[in-house]
Structures are given as structure tokens and as C-alpha cells.
Design a protein around this nucleic acid. Structure first.
Lengths: 187, 187
DNA sequence: TGCGCCATGTAACATGTTACATGATTAT
DNA sequence: ATAATCATGTAACATGTTACATGGCGCA
């Protein structure tokens, strides 16, 4: 899997705590790969057992102590090995499309209503991605090449939601068109 | 989850065996939702326990007996309830983007090589989706409205891969451009 | 002779989600 | 007061993957 490697990559940037990692995931890659804190802590334990990372406990006053993880030489080797391995196909879990596939059981008006709610959700996601991530690229990129790569990653997400949005508009238009023509709902 | 509901939807079309279901998944929705036979058999047991489906054993000679599942009234109710529930956001698991995010560790030429292999993979997926699914829409649709819906579902998948392909071309172009300008690889 | 199809299933493991649990500090 | 932030963790459950297991039939 690659949650291990995503975490390894983050830790390689700078030593961080599990809590920091959760925040980093939410702030940057959540559109391409999300993780709960449960998963993150479990994976950190696993990576520690395999000696790909180590941690030291930082004592704090007034707030909980924390474990700051850093990457080991073995971890760095593993990360590089993963980076050089082939890019795998994206996996799309699109339950809504399956639902639409069986939607012949319900009325056209109801389908349109579901699609319009969906459209709003997609618009929100798009706006989130546009506003939250735009700045981060320039803030964190360590080289011009990295800035280009990160910009393209962001573009991939934006393009995905833009495509989904225009597709939703099109299917709504078709269903409305169908209603106006007085098409029969069910077979 | 919706594997339950996807299966319920398939069984609602016509009574089928677990083996048939696996084939139906592979032939139609695998781009939006894949399932292994292990998962399918487990889910069939679960749906049977909840009395949303039932089965009868069909004795066969020369080949293994099979269980043909059909939907119960409770199952149909559950399916309709699901169909009327809000459309959820698609979940994209795009490990490659995360890998590209850390790619500043390796050389530009190597990144380009990885991207080119990826491009081929996407092209193959696109071709698969273009050829295999095109006919099925007209074969199985039971009404003009259903045909429109299924065409749009197919379009969603095609659009996704087309977008991914053009994005890949663009990032390759940028990396090649970067190399020609003699940009420094690593910071 | 060996492969693919038909048809089912289990065991072990990996990954991901939800709920429960604690407890001080700081801002509204 | 009460909510959010910081910071960690476990338990139970749900979902998904890989490998193991069986066995006849038809085709090249």
C-alpha cells in the first residue's frame, strides 16, 4: 500500500508527530488519499517496528507530550525504492454512478433533485481545493521543479472536479430535456 | 457501503449466481467499483442472513451446482431506500500523485520515464472502456431513459481517463521542457 | 498434456471507519 | 459555560486482497 510511503515522505520533509501528520494529510493530500488518526497511529507503530522511522518523546508543559518521528537510513532507502517503482492506476470509488445505473426505478424529477444536490457538493469540493491549496505550493516547494510538480498535482485535482461538475450539468440537462419531451419515466 | 446495494441492484435485474455477479462486475462497473469473488460471496451470505435475498440451488450435471439468488420484497425496499438517498462524493485513491509529490528526490529523466509508462497504462484503460462497454448500453437498457443514463455513466468514465491522459501529456511536456532549459534536478 | 472455464468456498491478512477514552489550555 | 485545539491511544467493526482448495469439461 502507500499510506506507509505517504507518511514516510512527510516525515522525510521534517520530523513530525502523529497529530501533525493528520493535519498535513487534511491540509494537502486529502483529495487523493485520506487517513484517519487511527490509521496514522497504527502505521507509525508499524513503521517503527520495521525500523523505517524512530521517535523521541518531547516533554511538554500544559499540553500532552508528543512523539516526534524521524526517518532512518533504512526508511530513506525504502522511500526511494517506492519512488522509483511504477506509477499505479488511480482507483475511483464512484458509488453514485452505480446508483444512477439503477435509477430507472425512480422518477425523473427525483433523479434530477439528487443530481442537483450532488452538483452543489462537487462545487463545494472544487472551491475548497481552489482556495485552500493554492498558496501552499509556493510556500513549501523547495525547488522550481518541485513547484511545477506540485502545481500539476493540484491541477489534476481541480481538473477532476471540473470534469465531474460539467458532467453533472450535462446529465441534469439531459434529464430535464427528457421531462420536457414528456418522456415516460419507467418502462 | 454500497457493494451490498450494487449487488442488490444486479440481482434485481435478474436472478444470478455469485459467479455471474463477478462477471457482471468485471464487464460493467469495474471502473467505478471493483469486487473480488471473496467479497461477493461474503456479501451474498450477509444479504441472505438479513433476508434481503434468497437463493435456490440449481443441480447441474458435468459442472458444479450453483446458487441462484433473487431479491426479496425487503430487499427491494432496501434498494429503493438506497436509490433515493443522496449521491455521495466520489473517492479517488491516487497514489501516483502522492509519489509525484515526493519525486523531487529522483532525476527528471526518471520521472519522465515513470510518467510515460503511466501514460501507456491510462491509454490501455481508456481503450478497454471504449471497446468493451460501448455495446452493452444498447443491449441491456430497458427504456430510452435508462439508455441515456447508462450512456452518461460510460461518458463519465471515458471523460475521467481522457482527462487523466491529457494531464499526463502536460506534465511530461513540462518535465521535458524543464530538462531542455537545463534546469537543476535537485535543490 | 496443459490451460481456461465453470462454480464454490475458506483462512489469513491488510486497510479503513466509528466509537470510546483521557485531560489540560485557550478562546468565545 | 462550552467549544476548539493539542495529543495520544484502543476496541470493535467493516471492507478489501491474496493465497489456498476442489474438480470436471472442453479445447488446442
Amino acid at each position: 500500500m502507500s499510506l506507509k510511503h505517504a507518511i514516510l515522505g512527510f516525515i522525510d520533509m521534517r520530523p513530525v508527530s502523529g497529530y501533525d501528520l493528520k493535519a498535513m494529510f487534511d491540509a494537502s493530500v486529502q483529495f487523493y488519499w485520506s487517513a484517519t488518526h487511527t490509521q496514522i497511529y497504527r502505521t507509525l507503530n508499524d513503521l517503527t517496528d520495521r525500523e523505517l522511522i524512530t521517535f523521541e518523546v518531547v516533554q511538554q508543559t500544559g499540553r500532552p507530550n508528543k512523539k516526534i518521528y524521524s526517518i532512518t537510513p533504512e526508511g530513506k532507502t525504502e522511500l526511494l525504492k517506492w519512488l522509483r517503482s511504477p506509477l499505479s492506476l488511480p482507483i475511483l470509488h464512484h458509488a453514485s454512478l452505480i446508483k444512477i445505473g439503477w435509477a430507472d426505478n425512480i422518477e425523473t424529477e427525483e433523479i434530477i433533485s439528487l443530481l442537483k444536490d450532488y452538483q452543489v457538493k462537487i462545487q463545494e469540493q472544487l472551491r475548497l481545493l481552489e482556495t485552500e491549496n493554492r498558496q501552499q505550493v509556493d510556500q513549501y516547494a523547495k525547488s522550481p521543479r518541485e513547484a511545477r510538480l506540485w502545481t500539476m498535482i493540484l491541477e489534476n485535482g481541480l481538473g477532476f472536479y471540473r470534469h465531474e461538475l460539467s458532467w453533472t450539468r450535462e446529465i441534469i440537462a439531459q434529464m430535464e430535456d427528457f421531462m420536457e419531451q414528456g418522456g415516460k419515466d419507467m418502462p
